[in-house]
């Protein structure tokens, strides 16, 4: 009697367990991972062992992650100071734009990336990547910044400097799901002399425009020239080099860059407009007038502005005499 009851109870447990396992198998079979297609042709394992680690204080994962990327580039920065610029006390967290801005204020190119293939490209190129994860659920978010320092296909883990845990091993599936909820957002921070491994022309130039906006004209000039080296036909790169070096007081580089840009787009008067203003600035008025006349001849939708520039140069030339 007792044995019978136990046996039937055991059977019930067994059935429950069987049913549960079946559900687990079905669920795990359903989830598809982006990383599979992205990782297969790549090296099995990448590990950047030397990325420094800073343990975060409460809610301070943003400043800590940024400090690690900066330290990797040799920029020692106190967490307290970074926290002041990055952390929003009201949100108990840090917003992506303020992290990007803090890196730019130190003269670094903050290059946002998206998805697995770019993440792997950066790691292969030797850059740790800051990523945004949602460790909670979409309707109950727990946002967290961590730094990816490697991955290993053989044991399907991602290595992270995360929170108070250095070299945390996270299963790839967990990483994939939490990162997906963060919209696959990632960030690399590089000095202006270095081009990120996954950089594309327009995305990189957009990042450097941000550096220029942060008034880091010397760093922006270097970054634009790096871009011009990688993409010699990039009109925007030469325009940017001209504008930033002019703002930095480097007239020679400005003149050279605007001339390059003008040569790349022979029917665009915009580089000539800026070149004329630079020439006028250093007192070379006759040259400036010849250049702006050339711009007016090229025409286009900026022609009205070119005429204004010409008036300005004529007025300045009269004043100078």
């Amino acid at each position: 009697m007792l044995i019978n009851q136990l046996q039937s109870a055991g059977g019930r447990w067994l059935a429950c367990a069987f049913f549960g396992i079946a559900i687990l198998i079905i669920i795990s079979g359903c989830s598809t991972y982006q990383y599979q297609s992205a990782l297969y042709p790549e090296p099995q394992r990448v590990y950047l062992a030397e990325v420094p680690f800073f343990a975060q204080e409460e809610y301070q994962c943003g400043p800590a992650a940024l400090a690690m990327l900066l330290a990797w580039n040799g920029e020692e920065e106190s967490l307290a100071q970074l926290g002041e610029q990055v952390y929003s006390p009201g949100l108990q967290g840090s917003l992506q734009p303020s992290i990007v801005a803090a890196a730019r204020r130190r003269g670094y190119v903050a290059y946002p990336l998206h998805g697995w293939s770019e993440l792997v490209a950066e790691l292969k190129g030797g850059q740790p990547v800051m990523i945004l994860q949602n460790l909670g659920l979409s309707w109950y978010p727990r946002w967290h910044y961590a730094v990816v320092i490697g991955y290993d296909q053989a044991v399907t883990t991602v290595m992270l400097h995360s929170g108070i845990y250095p070299e945390m091993q996270m299963p790839m599936g967990v990483f994939e799901r939490t990162w997906r909820r963060g919209d696959y957002w990632g960030l690399v921070v590089v000095p202006p002399t270095v081009l990120p491994a996954s950089a594309t022309e327009n995305a990189y130039l957009t990042a450097v425009v941000g550096l220029e906006r942060a008034q880091q004209f010397s760093a922006a000039t270097t970054a634009y020239l790096s871009a011009a080296k990688a993409w010699p036909n990039s009109f925007v790169a030469w325009m940017g080099a001209g504008n930033s070096s002019y703002n930095d007081g480097d007239i020679d580089t400005a003149i050279r860059s605007f001339r390059q840009a003008a040569a790349l787009q022979p029917d665009n008067g915009v580089p000539l407009n800026n070149l004329a203003l630079v020439l006028a600035q250093v007192g070379r008025h006759p040259e400036a007038l010849a250049v702006i006349d050339q711009a007016i001849n090229r025409g286009g939708k900026w022609q009205g502005m070119f005429r204004q520039t010409r008036q300005k140069i004529v007025a300045e030339a009269e004043l100078a005499q």
Binding site: M239, G240, N243, N273
Partner: peptide, 11 residues
């Protein structure tokens, strides 16, 4: 209106 045309505008 007369002045340098910014990189942002060009981009």
């Amino acid at each position: 209106q007369a002045g340098m045309i910014s990189t942002e505008t060009v981009l």
